[in-house]
Write a protein that binds this DNA or RNA. Structure first.
Lengths: 179, 179
DNA sequence: ATGCATGCAAATCCTTTGCAACGAA
DNA sequence: TTCGTTGCAAAGGATTTGCATGCAT
């Protein structure tokens, strides 16, 4: 019943870039080489990516693009409603492409750090119901399931770690600074 | 159906302090005046409290207790399993008393910043089911509903703010540093 | 030419650590 | 006396900001 979502951002990259350009024009903002590179990389990757991920990827080819610009561009994407920010248990801000009325939650593997999206209508309804019964008016929700994916088993075997640095490994508690 | 939980920590403060002392003894750790003060305040307040909240409260009477000690004591409570850490959308680490097999989620008001706990068995079952169907082995979950409580209405009226500083107001996006 | 964008360095913010002085056992 | 504790100051780490310079429009 929970339906796995198709990888966001796989299709329609150029359409999204078009949307961004429209947004920029409307607000009298400028379209620059850096923004194009960053946005392209962001859309190509698809989702759940940190500012540092993007910075690392693009700085191989473009050593002249600064960390700051990556952050600023990502914020810009959020403002233009092409992306949303998410913070999982590792306390790193991740960005993912936003497709309008997109509404989904996450399964996060504590073994390999992979993040899988899912959506479940029954869950949504239940959330609404709970909120209503408490006199709440829901604006947003956040639901994350932490555990071990099929590949990583129950955690005893450890699973295969992703190549990234420590920052890519979500921790049961918090492993970042923890800032 | 969602059942509101009774305010944790209202009862059994001395029993909990006893548990902590036992823990300290078992590990060859020491029982100090500062720890006692901090833990008492923590248990008295009940839950969803930040290190700064506690620091502010106790430093009125005890100007000699440092921020660092508050942090360290809170971490100690987590290790001794008397408390858990939680991070909501404002990115501040909050602590709440842990009663063994406690399992609940949160409703967070964007108006007044109040945090209400709830638990719902159907929700738990649904979460398990979703995880299982995706080949996941769930270890923990996190579910937060953001919105406006009965008192704060739909947000247009703003609601009554809590006395605290800006840090007490959860933001739709993030309002802390952010970090 | 304007004025938004960029990059660097410096600043923030929360949280943690190093270290010398303290104090519980 | 012996170590764990404390407080302060400083370090850390992710993210943001100030400012002079650069570059779309």
């Amino acid at each position: 019943m929970p339906k796995r979502r198709k990888p966001a951002g796989a299709r329609g990259i150029s359409e999204k870039k078009e949307l961004l350009n429209t947004f920029l024009k409307e607000w009298g903002l400028k379209s620059t080489r850096q923004r194009d590179i960053i946005v392209t990389e962001f859309l190509k990757t698809g989702g759940h990516i940190t500012a540092e991920d993007i910075y690392r990827k693009i700085s191989k080819k473009h050593q002249d693009i600064g960390f700051t610009t990556v952050y600023r561009t990502l914020k810009l994407l959020v403002k233009s409603r092409l992306a949303t920010e998410r913070v999982f248990a590792d306390n790193l801000t991740r960005y993912e492409p936003l497709s309008a009325e997109d509404h989904h939650d996450h399964l996060i593997c504590l073994g390999c750090g992979s993040i899988t999206e899912f959506e479940n209508a029954r869950m949504e309804r239940l959330q609404e119901k709970i909120a209503r019964e408490s006199g709440f008016n829901t604006v947003a929700h956040k639901m994350e399931l932490y555990g071990y994916c099929g590949r990583c088993g129950s955690g005893s075997r450890g699973g295969k770690k992703q190549p990234g640095t420590k920052k890519n490994a979500p921790a049961p508690q918090k492993n970042r600074n923890n800032r």
